[in-house]
């Protein structure tokens, strides 16, 4: 048994040394990209010609997946195509902070040519890991890059980083809700206390709500298990509920919708995926577009046109109104005449 243990340790250790041996280990580190599993078999002479783009995503979630898809599309539009002149490696931390740090560190160790970090904690982990190297970090889906200390007030970063923000179009959302529900007074918002972006968004809502004649009623939850109670409680106090991009709440959207339906009030979403899943409407960002924009920023860094720290982070400004006709019917709501042309049916 002792011998077996000794062998096991020796094996583990030797693996770790292979890992640090040279960049050829990167090939075996392999893209998790399903399509390209075969690519890891390729000789590593390819590696010299192809740029290595590493995508680190914090959690698996409709909007974030769309960001990633858009990012890859954006690169492609600028002439960087997977398998041709770039290799894409993708890792997802499944919302585990320890794994996020490890993934960021691995990408840096593997000497990626560029790291794309999706969502705030992942952006922070990559920003930290890449500090002291010349690897550019391009982040996306970071609500407030200044609050996350990824950028200065002037929208430029201290370090080799830039990206895009998915700040919620709060005003557009309030305007939309007013258009759909001219009589409504109180809007309920559920959020989880563990997500800093949600708190920022609530502050924005509170700031702007008055202008549109609304009052915001918020309720924070600590964990998924609290949502049924919190949702039922808030649904009894307000005229409608609006969602943020809060991961915990969005993952439990069905519970919120159920509670709202029992109180016969509608739930407005914050992006298209939520509308598809039963929210009546949303003034939402197009995350694919956000990803594309990010991909284009990455491309200009790869082409050496600009360094990442010379590019201001961008906030996507235009939003679309997505609707779910079935859900609207359920609550006897209809699309206001002046919006009929512009709304998009989410399906």
């Amino acid at each position: 048994m002792k011998k077996f243990m000794a062998l096991a340790i020796a094996f583990a250790l030797s693996l770790s040394f292979v890992g640090c041996g040279d960049s050829s280990a990167n090939e075996s580190a392999g893209s998790t990209d399903q399509i390209n599993n075969e690519a890891s078999e390729q000789e590593h002479s390819d590696n010299d010609e192809k740029l290595k783009i590493s995508i680190a995503q914090f959690a698996e979630h409709g909007s974030l997946d769309n960001c990633r898809e858009g990012f890859i599309d954006g690169l492609k539009e600028e002439g960087f195509e997977e398998g041709k002149n770039i290799e894409i490696e993708y890792q997802n931390a499944q919302a585990d902070m320890g794994a996020a740090n490890q993934i960021a560190q691995n990408f840096v160790n593997d000497k990626a040519d560029l790291i794309c970090a999706i969502a705030t904690p992942m952006a922070q982990a990559c920003y930290n890991a890449a500090d002291g190297t010349d690897i550019p970090v391009i982040y996306t889906a970071v609500t407030d890059p200044v609050a996350a200390e990824l950028s200065n007030e002037n929208k430029l970063s201290e370090k080799n980083a830039t990206g895009t923000s998915d700040k919620l179009p709060v005003e557009q959302q309030l305007k939309m809700i007013r258009a759909f529900m001219p009589e409504a007074k109180k809007i309920g918002i559920l959020y989880s206390t563990s997500e800093v972006n949600s708190e920022t968004a609530i502050e924005q809502y509170k700031e702007k709500a008055g202008e549109y004649g609304f009052e915001i009623v918020e309720s924070g939850v600590n964990q998924s298990a609290d949502i049924p109670m919190a949702a039922a409680d808030i649904a009894s106090k307000v005229d409608c509920i609006t969602n943020l991009t809060d991961n915990t709440i969005v993952s439990n959207l069905a519970v919120v919708l159920d509670a709202a339906e029992k109180a016969s009030i509608p739930v407005f979403g914050s992006e298209i995926e939520q509308v598809k899943n039963g929210c009546v409407a949303a003034a939402g960002l197009d995350y694919i577009e956000l990803g594309k924009l990010t991909g284009k920023m990455a491309a200009s860094v790869l082409k050496n046109e600009k360094k990442a720290n010379e590019i201001e982070y961008e906030v996507i400004s235009q939003s679309n109104v997505y609707i779910n006709s079935q859900a609207l019917d359920k609550f006897n709501l209809s699309v206001p005449d002046d919006m009929k042309e512009s709304v998009i049916e989410a399906e």
């Binding site: 583990a12 890992g19 392999g30 998790t32 890792q91 499944q94 794994a99 490890q102 691995n106």
Partner: peptide, 12 residues
Amino acid sequence: VAIAISFGLSAT
């Protein structure tokens, strides 16, 4: 853990 991740094991 690091070896597992660098061999492409997903966090899942």
